[in-house]
Simulated assay, not measured.
Amino acid sequence: MLRKSTNAGRRSAVMTGLLLIVGLVTGILSVVPVIDGADYLVKASTNENQVLLGAFFQLLMIVSYVGIPILMYPMLSKHHKGLALGSVAFGIIAGVFIILGVILLLLLLTVSHEFAKVGTLHATYFQTLGGLLRGGRDLVNHVATTLAFALAMFLFTCVFYQTQLVPRWLSVWGLIGSTMSILASLLFMIRFIGLDATYMVLNIPIASQQLVLAIWLMMKGLKPNGL
């Protein structure tokens, strides 16, 4: 029975590591440069494949964002059921916001197609509508989704820290990274910063920690007795 439980824990650790890498890769591939540019109303429709590909990879992020806390719940709940359940809840919330972000992205593509048909006849109307949709998408992606997933990872890492399922230094790194990511989203929400270098720098610690954690889980697994 112990051997069976150990094997199950090992598989969960490896799968969690893979999902962490999937989340990082799909997050990068979901970026749609034509939407972030100043002339997005013109370029989105002429680069439809880029937009649709970005939407596809953004949807794939759900597998990672929702799958990680669910996959680790059976083991983490043995140590702290409340934190494990909270991590699952925030992961699911992040998944819902990802879907909303994709919908807004596809609506922007539709607006771009309509703008291409009418030209500059109703330019102000389309610019206003496009601005609202793009602003809404930025808030959903970089505030709502990021906050939900960062909170999921924060609770997730709290259990790691308490139980030493992974090294303490890796857990501390994750707690600091999650906190900085939350800070970046809040600062962006109040318009103190934009989607600029400052925002990226604040998110580097959590991204790098997730990569190291993924490698650790796949190579070392979890150590219930501490390290």
Rank of each mutant, 00 (worst) to 15 (best):
I204A: 08
L71S: 14
I98S: 09
S181V: 12
V66I: 00
A38W: 08
A89P: 04
G101V: 13
I176T: 09
K81C: 05
I99V: 15
N7Q: 10
D39M: 06
S181Y: 13
G101Y: 08
G177W: 09
V102C: 14
V140E: 11
A152T: 06
Q58W: 08
T26K: 08
I62V: 12
V102L: 12
K78C: 04
G37C: 07
W173M: 11
Y40K: 02
F154T: 13
T16Y: 13
F90M: 13
A13L: 03
E114K: 05
Y65S: 11
A144R: 02
V42I: 01
T157I: 12
I193G: 03
Q127N: 07
L213N: 01
S5I: 06
T198S: 08
L41T: 01
Y199V: 00
I35W: 10
I93K: 08
M1D: 03
F115Y: 12
A84E: 13
Y73D: 04
L211Y: 06
M1Y: 02
V96W: 12
S181C: 14
L133P: 00
V143N: 15
G131H: 09
T157H: 09
K81Y: 07
V42S: 02
L165E: 08
L19A: 08
Q162K: 09
P74R: 03
L183R: 14
T110A: 01
Q58C: 05
L186D: 14
L108C: 02
A144C: 14
I93S: 07
A84G: 08
F56V: 09
L107Y: 12
G23C: 14
